[in-house]
């Protein structure tokens, strides 16, 4: 296979593009030519040496980049797709040498595992699931959960991978009556999983038993909300949702994320905090990622905004570089970096 090295082009001056606490450390250019769609991180192990790698996705090519010295990257593997384009990278925590991708046009039609054969180092892909897939999430402890519809039933399926990304176990979770749109892990509770439904409810599963534990309505003011993160504290469930209808006209600013608290025993909840854009900044949520206490969002203005969820305010705004709007943002799963990308294949890595 070919080994390409990214060009370390002249990086833009830090002062002009790195507001707040963001420090540009590296850039890689995905030269495939087609539209970039996503970025992610994963661990890759060769000869007992584990390295944090970057995965980039264009419409029909997914590439694995290994680190060189001094923050440069080389492309070492590429997986090619011919019929169905890539929609998103699905990283699976706690597993080495495996990353998953969701393929489809508008909706997910396939989930594939991307591997590399250890004996001849050739790229392999394995179809994990196909059909009318609504949601997918990689979970801690090498697990992957999907929701899909057959003719009349919704299936919620969890797969568990072996440590080397190999053989897998399957388990079904009890499906709710409503279509699941997204999943979120509950931080610190490995056996709990949340789902947000099309009817504006949050459901909780016990992943060990597959039981559906509770359905909680999040209220009509949170319509079509998507859950990004949850944690349990003092018997209450705190949930970070993206704000569904942020408008610049609201008097308190433009909310992009919101924190709500729910009592899982009573299914009662209330709003705790809105995470708004600073005055003078406009834009609605396009896509985003939440990790630990930090949320990042690509806005319709083409900028990226970052919030400290504990402080409650926006801590950095990253304007477009070279007049190219940002199109995706991910927190690294292997360290404390932010990966941001443009449609033309430029990926920038910031330390935060």
């Amino acid at each position: 296979h070919s080994v390409e090295q990214n060009e370390m082009e002249d990086l833009p001056a830090c002062d002009s593009v790195n507001p707040g606490n963001l420090q540009l450390v590296s850039k890689l250019k995905n030269p495939s030519g087609s539209c970039s769609v996503d970025v992610g991180t994963m661990w890759w192990e060769t000869a007992g040496h584990k390295e944090p790698c970057i995965v980039t996705a264009c419409e029909y090519i997914v590439s694995l980049w290994k680190p060189l010295d001094t923050w440069q990257w080389k492309k070492v593997y590429s997986w090619h797709f011919t019929e169905v384009p890539v929609l998103q990278i699905v990283s699976v925590p706690d597993v080495c040498n495996l990353v998953c991708v969701a393929l489809g046009n508008l909706e997910i039609r396939e989930i594939r595992a991307l591997l590399c054969s250890s004996h001849d180092e050739s790229e392999e892909q394995l179809l994990l699931k196909s059909g009318n897939i609504k949601a997918v999430l990689g979970l801690t402890k090498r697990r992957l959960v999907t929701s899909s519809w057959t003719l009349c039933d919704q299936q919620i399926e969890m797969m568990t991978f072996a440590e080397d990304g190999g053989s897998k176990e399957k388990q079904f979770l009890m499906p709710p009556e409503e279509t699941i749109l997204t999943f979120a892990e509950v931080q610190g509770m490995q056996e709990a999983l949340l789902g947000t439904t099309i009817m504006n409810n949050i459901v909780i599963w016990n992943l060990k038993t597959g039981q559906l534990l509770k359905k909680m309505h999040v209220g009509d003011s949170y319509q079509a909300s998507v859950c990004h993160k949850a944690y349990s504290e003092m018997g209450l469930l705190f949930v970070v949702l993206r704000h569904p209808c942020a408008k610049g006209s609201e008097s308190f600013g433009s909310p992009v994320f919101q924190l709500i608290v729910m009592n899982p025993k009573t299914a009662l909840g209330m709003g705790v905090m809105l995470y708004c854009l600073p005055h003078g900044q406009a834009g609605r949520f396009l896509e985003g990622d939440v990790k630990d206490n930090f949320a990042a969002a690509v806005l319709t203005s083409g900028k990226i905004a970052i919030w400290d969820l504990l402080l409650g305010h926006c801590t950095a705004i990253l304007p477009p570089i070279s007049d190219q709007n940002w199109s995706f943002v991910k927190w690294s799963g292997t360290d404390s970096h932010l990966l941001v990308g443009q449609k033309d294949g430029n990926i920038f890595i910031y330390h935060y």
């Binding site: 909780i204 016990n206 038993t209 349990s232 018997g235 729910m262 009592n263 025993k265 209330m270």
Partner: peptide, 23 residues
């Protein structure tokens, strides 16, 4: 709104809901 509006709180909500829910 206050914490009281959320009703009785249990630190063991996950275990309790698991024992109450259908298998």
């Amino acid at each position: 709104c206050s914490k009281a509006d959320l009703g009785p709180i249990s630190l063991n909500w996950f275990e309790e809901l698991s024992s109450e829910a259908p298998p």
